[in-house]
Structures are given as structure tokens and as C-alpha cells.
Amino acid sequence: MAPPLLRVHRLEVRPPGAATSICRDVSFDLAGGERVALVGPSGAGKTTLLRALNGSVAALSGRIDLAGETVNPSATGALRGLRRRIAVIPQKHDLVEPLRVYHNVMAGALGRWSDAHALRFLFWPLAAELGEAQAALERVGLGDKLRARAGTLSGGQQQRVAIARALVQRPLLLLADEPVASLDPRLAHQALQLLCRLAEDDGIAVICSLHQPDLARQYFPRTIEMEAGRLVGDRTRDARPQTVPAAPAMRQERAARLA
């Protein structure tokens, strides 16, 4: 059997300044392209686990292997190499608002660009690069926003720009921390549906923390449950086919069109 994409083994994390460990004895494997929802009450350690996975906080003990390599946040070069292969979609839309949308989207490529390339693109983007940004934006349904200032977009649009940035990064693994927490229910369904479909198309594995169990069941074949820093459940649903369901709003629209 091929080794898993991600192997977390007896991980314990205590962020700097914290009195006790936030994650304890966490172990799980993730296969390439697999989609997992991380559920649990707030304070269960979901965010800390995600931050440990991309090397933002160091593990106190245990180990994390990504594609056969051990995550070690203390070695800067290795950390950059790791982060290049892990994309992050944060909870709050955190675009660089004074820059244009294409700058924000192509920020996903900064990990593989040299500094000189990055500085040149800031002032003098080439047609091919803009084409890549445009393609990513079209996949998230924002094809007309290439040159807009990021600050002029709505919250939902900013979220989709963050997803486009993650696509441009061409990662092996996508970490999303409560990506729908600040969206209303209808937009939340649309965002999750989009995220999962794109990840499936590109073969990207996803770990997505959510606090709504129903959303987790609906969009993720596998659910990992955390409580007080420990894994308390790991369920894979096999009975149903592992395809992405359409968002309810779209289902209604389709029903309306058929009727």
C-alpha cells in the first residue's frame, strides 16, 4: 500500500504562551485527494491543529509527515518548502485590500517565484501570468474582477478570491479554518460546494474545520471529531457515493427551472 499523503502521529501542541497543551495525542492519516471535516466545539483545538499542520506552531512532541517529509518549523527553508505545498483558506477574508485582485490571486505563486520575479509582477504583470489569475478567478466565478481593488469586493467575493489564491498555489493539501463562519447559510453552502468541487477536480486533499455537523456530513466523506484537544471520533461514510452534492439553493433553482 502506498504511504498516506499526511501522517500525524501522537501529536502534542502547546502554542507559545499557553499554560497547557491545546492538542494532545492526536494521530490520523490522510490519503491524497481525501476530504475531511474537522468538527468539535470551539476551543477543542481545531485551529491549533491546523496551524501545527502548516508549521505555524511547533509541535511539543509527536511528528507530522507530509508526502514522506517531516514538518519542522524551525528550519526556515524547509518550512517555506512545506508551506508551498499546503494552501490555507483562513476564517476571515484577509486579502491585502489596497492591492488588485490579480495581485492577491497570484500571491499563491509567491512560494515558487524568486523575489525578483515577485517584485516584477507587482508592477509589470505579464499576459501569461494574468491569464493564470483569470483562469483561477473564472473557476470561482469571479472572471470579471481581475483588475478590481480587493477592498471593493464583498465578503463572499473576497472568500472566493482566497480560494482562487489557494488554487494558484497548486497544493497537495488544503487547510480551511472555519471558512464559512462569517457567511450566511446560503452562501455557506455555495462556498463549501465550490471548495469541495475544485479540490476534487484538482485532486487536492482537504482538511476543513467546521462547527456545523450537518454541513460536515453533507460535503465531507470523512469526519474527524475533536474535543478538549483530543480526537474523539473518526468516521468515514461509505454507504453514500462520495460526490459533491449541489448546494440547496442551486437545487431549488434547478427545480424551478424544470418546473
Partner: peptide
């Protein structure tokens, strides 16, 4: 936003510029 750009694997110079 700084954290978001840094988490793409961008270098220090790139984070400052972007």
C-alpha cells in the same frame, strides 16, 4: 493578511512587498 501571504510559502521580501 500578512499571515495569509506568508502561509503560501512566500519569502520575507515577498511578504513585505505583497
Amino acid at each position: 493578511p500578512l499571515i495569509a501571504v506568508a502561509s503560501t510559502g512566500a519569502s520575507g521580501v515577498a511578504v513585505a512587498a505583497y
